[in-house]
Design a protein around this nucleic acid. Structure first.
Lengths: 172, 172
DNA sequence: TTGTATTTTCAATATATACTGAAAATTCAG
DNA sequence: CTGAATTTTCAGTATATATTGAAAATACAA
């Protein structure tokens, strides 16, 4: 396996992983490509390596920047823009956690709150209402804990968090 | 907001959440429907509530059983099969964690191992190989820790795990 | 400025994914 | 067994999502 083949294998697998996590395959592949190369890369190189159109490359790069996973850089004297992935895995995880919290956890928690707060109509079976609320409260509790965990992840750095977590896990 | 409206809101939101996590919207909606009702439900009721075909309902119920999120039950004297969601949120989370570990983490770790173990060709820049391996090793390290955490989640019950995690997080 | 390299947008199109519906298979009470 | 109820399968179709490519907008060196 040469370097290029290994990179290709990584790009493919990262793309699959992205797809399984609701991120478009191409977006994950661009991310992997940038992760797998030492320096920043320009749009044409990305287009060529992944065999995708300029529009596609541009849109997905924008999405990656939106997720704070990729930043634009400039090379002195060169007009083109270059793109680089954040390579610190911990920062990467934090960026993803922050985004998913905002995009998914928060809307869910809002709906749970509203659904639990229903004023049941007189045709609603009180036992069913109780059951429904109970299930939703459980999910809400789980979500609250997940949110707190994500908050801490935002604040701690990798070494202290992971060290503590690992200590905890060994003790468990 | 009546009970039915609240259920509908929950089903919608859970469907969106599922879609964002790479689970088909309908699969997540069926799951939500079962979570939001006290007893098991038969295929026709699900079809009617979500306005979907029999084939669709059947396929997604099978997928949910595959994920260990839903079980078939029988009612004495009734031929039809009834379906019920696991409502314990912690068990639900464990089931999902176990599946995702197998489906996503394990294949990724295999590819990472293979890519790190490349025998670089003589045309491969040693510095690039070193960089590439460094990035992949970081991801591998992260994956290993995530896997260990998932292992523990499998073994501990909710109260002891969450209590320990919360203690940890407050201390951080 | 002006001209050109570069990025961005987006309607049209292609592709992937999900869904339907009816036929085939299965199950089970009688 | 028999046959009706029920589940399962899957080819065909619909829908959603991703991608292209070229025109428009933008940025910038001269």
């Amino acid at each position: 396996m040469t370097l290029e083949e290994a990179r290709q294998a990584f790009v493919d697998e990262w793309g699959k992983l992205g797809a399984a996590w609701g991120i478009s395959r191409t977006m994950a592949q661009i991310h992997a490509l940038l992760l797998a190369h030492p320096g920043p890369m320009d749009t044409d190189t990305i287009m060529e390596k992944l065999v995708i159109s300029r529009g596609n490359a541009n849109m997905n790069l924008r999405a990656l920047m939106d997720w704070d996973l990729v930043v634009k850089t400039n090379q002195p004297g060169v007009r083109r823009e270059f793109y680089a992935a954040e390579k610190d895995v911990w920062k990467m995880a934090r960026a993803i956690a922050a985004q998913r919290r905002k995009r998914e956890l928060e809307p869910l928690m809002r709906v749970l709150g509203e659904a639990i707060a229903i004023e049941p109509g007189k045709n609603d079976d009180p036992a069913e209402v109780r059951d429904f609320r109970k299930t939703l409260r459980e999910i809400q509790g789980f979500g609250t804990k997940a949110g707190k965990a994500l908050d801490l992840v935002q604040r701690l750095d990798q070494s202290s968090f992971v060290a503590r977590l690992m200590g905890l896990l060994k003790a468990g």
